[in-house]
Design a protein around this nucleic acid. Sequence first.
DNA 1: ATAATTTGATAACAAATGTTATCGTCACCC
DNA 2: GGGTGACGATAACATTTGTTATCAAATTAT
Lengths: 190, 190
Amino acid sequence: MIEQFRNRFQLEASKFDAYAKCFNRIEVPAKTTLLNEGEISKRMFFIEKGCIREWFNNDGKDVTCQFFFEQEAVGSIESFKKNIPGLTTIETIEPSVLWWIHQEDALRVIEEIKDIPRLRDLFIDKIFERTFDYMKYFFSAIKDSPQERYLRLLAERPEVIRRVPQHYIASYMGISSVHLSRIKSKLSKR
Amino acid sequence: MIEQFRNRFQLEASKFDAYAKCFNRIEVPAKTTLLNEGEISKRMFFIEKGCIREWFNNDGKDVTCQFFFEQEAVGSIESFKKNIPGLTTIETIEPSVLWWIHQEDALRVIEEIKDIPRLRDLFIDKIFERTFDYMKYFFSAIKDSPQERYLRLLAERPEVIRRVPQHYIASYMGISSVHLSRIKSKLSKR
DNA sequence: ATAATTTGATAACAAATGTTATCGTCACCC
DNA sequence: GGGTGACGATAACATTTGTTATCAAATTAT
């Protein structure tokens, strides 16, 4: 994991090592809560192995708002800067191997990165990508039927379909698990 | 308009004037198409007065994806860097006074801005804000009923309700105009 | 191994939402 | 000032989606 980052960002060795010290490796079983509103000191996670979902409580029902897999960062910059949407809970779906960093360290690293043009541009691109993603999700939500959205998810993020329990996917799609089951059944009859 | 920007960004006079030269003022009637897939050279607009909607064609129906009002920028950075979602059309809803800039000029200004820490941070904050907005829209789409989303729109962006024709709002909410009419009627009966 | 829990499919019924059509009002154009 | 089209309300009916309940299979815990 560490080596991947070293290659990816090409920092000077001393600086990289300083950053690397901030990261802690943990292994956790499935259904482990990593972050919730109770916690005061926030953390950010990188997934070496496993799969995570982010969700929040809406009138007693959980609404899943995102899934994360290997090589992705969770508990990310957005929720660091503001708390949106309200406070979310992050928990593992599969047994996972994670690297975590304190929020303050992450923010400090980001501030330093902003002065290195190459990394700054990389950072800005990452934010843009995230913006595009959420634009896509939003547009898809208003223009596509649930069945179309399921097919889109299957095409664009097959990992989600393969690895995530179906009722979480239904919640993420904003439909009932019964309805998702019907969609699958209808599709399989072709 | 120009003076507002001068105050907002506090650039050196010479640089500011160079930028200012790139902007062109136009006045257009309602329902004017400002940008569509036919156009090769793209433009970006700032609204001095009026109101704009952005939409795209989805199987023969228009889907409205956003509304813009005074002091907002349209045809923005996102669609400059990538073309998402596909190509959108931008048209005025009300008679409007606009300032436009060539895409290339806008990109050049942005590149220069990245080296001025204060403006760079402003720029990054703007992108973040946009990301948060679309996250909120997406989450609201999966967790709230159409009626709740209407009330949210009324609370958070009353301008949209006041100034935009209802069938555009319905399209933006991803519901039929009949259904939106029913929601309003139901709410007014309380 | 057995029990308990989670997951997913299905049916029956209820509620929400879409579609099509009709009508009235209002603004705009000649 | 009469026509035209845009806008919005409403009704009737069709379709989609949610809810609740039940069952079976798979997974996990003891």
